[in-house]
Write a protein that binds this DNA or RNA. Structure first.
Lengths: 269, 269
DNA sequence: TCAAAAGTATCGCTATGCAATACCTTCGTA
DNA sequence: TACGAAGGTATTGCATAGCGATACTTTTGA
């Protein structure tokens, strides 16, 4: 049984801190750390790997894995060679998506957008320094990872990220830039703070943001921000195509109005 | 802020049992019970509702919710009126999908299938008495719920379910039928054991299964099973369309060969 | 065939997190 | 604008849940 590599452009969620406050239940944190051990792998994990990957001893890992297994959140690999995440996870995926008003409201808008644009259309939601894809309507040919709900990308170097930053104050933008681990994901990833700020200004003027294979070779993407009633950017709508079929100018001329219109439909209540 | 109703055709996961084995960490089970409280609601929950919905007192719910919140698995509703599932859940969704070889292998096949068929194409995986949707490629017009990863449907009355049952022994089929909570989801849901068995035999003969608005009014669906190397059915590929556009016969003639071919591509390694 | 790795089981001690209770805040109604 | 109820937050002493060390069984691959 073959396993797919992990996407090299994935972003780690802000794993932040657990201090010692009296209400914090560390057993729960451990469970989540065990589940998060799978973020870093492309294949099933053994108990010891889980223990190592989540920074606990074998004993602790054993108990946690045992429990999660009983509950269906972890299961044995198809040919019993290691542990993988369990299907019960998807039940919570559904709840998340259903109960997120943005996702449910965006759904018909995205569908409509996808009908006009014949390219990939995504909805992403902001989580700290990253955008997490919550809905993906793929086009004809796609890579597997471009179909994955839950995939995340950095804010600092993506069309969606810059669309989001365009609606933040300069100070906030600087903060995002400063805290981001800015590394070149592709040769064309923009990592220089001033260059990023320039792209953000550009996005503010245009009303949409553009990125050229900064995350994925050969990919062109434009995005528009989705705002809360108060004006805080919550996420973005993306349209992504291939540079083998489009040049930047045509892509923008053709799709920017549609992307803007879609975001507009979501931003006025 | 408006919230969508929960889908009336959802299926509860087998919540089974936790006995008192020494390795079982009940704090983890509680956390998952809290998260599962959202399965039954269409709107954000208050602390007390969570407590009630997961069968624990306010104190316990408080600690668990607090912890899950710190970790990002629960968050406050957009306008701070209650709790909803948190975005960190999607990180695990991604891991589940990535690490499930069936999903990754099926992905290109589904995409290809969707290209030929211009209708909705789904991949579902078996979990006990239900099928859980793991990948969904929607057609032009869709209901919101038909786009949801993690949505689940019963085995006993769906095209996918019967495609799966077609590859089980008669005894196993009887077992599924017996344990299923067979209720009419629509007027056309088939609930009679003998009628179900007849449909399963039909699926065995045809190599695919058919269902006519047994779960959703106006929906026609055919499905083929995906098998493990050993021959156990693991899930199904579905093609779903609208009865306003298709009659059963044409739908089958047109799509059955394609569905069969797609499943075939996955079943031979 | 054998050693190493993976998984399973046991057990006594104490830190963990339980549950009761009380306090603070927000919201809708009068 | 005052009031009551519901929602959310904080504290604390005690019992037990679950920690972690260790040892045993099974599987794997060299």
């Amino acid at each position: 049984m073959r396993y797919v590599q992990r996407a090299e452009y994935g972003v780690r969620p802000a794993t932040s801190v657990d201090e010692s406050d009296p209400l914090f239940v560390q057993a729960i944190a451990r469970a989540m750390r065990v589940l998060s051990a799978f973020h870093d792998t492309g294949k099933p994990l053994t108990l010891n790997e889980i223990a190592a990957g989540s920074g606990m001893d074998k004993s602790a890992a054993q108990r946690v894995v045992h429990t999660l297994r009983q509950l269906g959140y972890v299961q044995r690999d198809a040919d019993d060679r290691g542990y993988v995440p369990g299907i019960r996870i998807l039940d919570h995926t559904r709840d998340y998506l259903r109960l997120n008003p943005l996702v449910s409201r965006a759904s018909p808008v995205l569908l409509e957008l996808r009908r006009n644009v014949r390219e990939r259309v995504d909805l992403s939601l902001r989580d700290g320094l990253r955008l997490v894809y919550a809905a993906r309507l793929q086009s004809k040919r796609e890579t597997f990872f471009a179909t994955l709900v839950g995939q995340s990308v950095p804010i600092y170097c993506t069309s969606g990220g810059r669309a989001v930053m365009a609606h933040m104050s300069d100070a906030e933008v600087d903060d995002v830039i400063a805290r981001s681990d800015r590394r070149k994901i592709t040769p064309r990833t923009i990592t220089d703070p001033d260059a990023i700020r320039a792209k953000v200004r550009e996005a503010r003027q245009n009303g949409y943001a553009l990125a050229l294979e900064e995350v994925l070779q050969g990919e062109i993407a434009i995005a528009t921000a989705i705002l809360s009633p108060g004006g805080t950017p919550l996420g973005a709508i993306h349209i992504a195509g291939s540079l083998s079929e489009w040049d930047a100018e045509t892509f923008c001329r053709r799709f920017a109005p549609l992307a803007t219109e879609a975001a507009g439909a979501l931003n006025r209540f």
